[in-house]
Design a protein around this nucleic acid. Sequence first.
DNA 1: AGCCTGAAGTTGACGGTGTCAAGATCTATG
DNA 2: CATAGATCTTGACACCGTCAACTTCAGGCT
Lengths: 202, 202
Amino acid sequence: MSTAPPSKATYHHGDLRASLLSTATSMLTSCGIEGLSLRKLADQVGVSRTAPYHHFKDKNELLCAIAEQGFENWQQQTQQIFAQGDLTHKQKFRQFVFDYIKYAADNPELYDLMFGRTIWKQKAATEPLKAVAYPSFQRQVDMTRLWQQQGLMPQHLDTLRLAQVTWGTLHGIARLLIDGIYADASHIDEMCETAVSLFVTD
Amino acid sequence: MSTAPPSKATYHHGDLRASLLSTATSMLTSCGIEGLSLRKLADQVGVSRTAPYHHFKDKNELLCAIAEQGFENWQQQTQQIFAQGDLTHKQKFRQFVFDYIKYAADNPELYDLMFGRTIWKQKAATEPLKAVAYPSFQRQVDMTRLWQQQGLMPQHLDTLRLAQVTWGTLHGIARLLIDGIYADASHIDEMCETAVSLFVTD
DNA sequence: AGCCTGAAGTTGACGGTGTCAAGATCTATG
DNA sequence: CATAGATCTTGACACCGTCAACTTCAGGCT
């Protein structure tokens, strides 16, 4: 599962930071954010409760590091859609919507950490996290501009505002789903289809 | 501020439940959900740490009671819009959008409690809360059906899905705002205007 | 009137949390 | 080979939610 140390007999772990990160991520996805405690984490990795503090300043920094990894994966995943050459612009947009929601539905706890208030409301994001997250926000704007130029979306609307609203829609649908309020997984496809047909002016 | 007991000399408080509720609500709005602890609350009300347990089974029940009040206020506020007779359908819809976002922006912590994962993801909603919240979800569907009949929104789309997407959009914009990610208060009006012009097919 | 049941409020205690300080251990560099 | 610094440890503190047992008081029954 996680990167195991070569031998447990050693006083020093060898690769504790990576171990903590991967174990924390799996604890997050299986137990939720409220079930992730530093003490349980240290215990699971087989190390004393304060050992993690030599690799992360505090719990927030650990959470930011997890989110950081999440953004890297997500970004990679997203860009694969646009690399596919044999799709029309509308098909790509449709694929983007479906994949966005699918990512959130498949990784609810991670999505919540990446795009939730735990990190952002308290303005607790670390610099490395910002360095990965902000460009991916910006990318949303760039894509929107492209969609406007391709005639998928109204050109008379301000690109930034349009980007905020379209992303807001995806974000809102994702949240309704993963917070289990007013929508459940069986509605995903139809909701995405409805969203696409609302936005795309063809 | 809160309902003060007639005299502090009495052993029994007199109206502790109401005092707890109002003080908790004001602590929530001023300190955030993470700053609201039962011990601090009891202390502020001037009562021992376990006194609240005679009025609320646990912290969750207190939170649900706060959310319950929030829904009642919110519902009341929303219905005032539709009582105004001198507005066109489109104007009413526009007003609804603006008011929805304004409510979230004005009461970020309360909005988070009412529509956030703290209560709903853990399926921790009490029966009284559900009794108030579910109908207000249903009302969203009813309004959407009306908007379709009035020609504001495409009639060929399934009403339930359309309601989920339109509400998802408002919810998403609200969350982007109150979580301080990718949008701030100065964008509110323009974002609302963009959302309206995207949804209303005139 | 007086008792006495039960609601309301109290202190004490337990296990859990994040985090700091000080000491132990090992690794690697001069 | 020694020693400095990174790494890991135990101890301690201040919080938190919650249970159990005790005290106080108000209201209804005889």
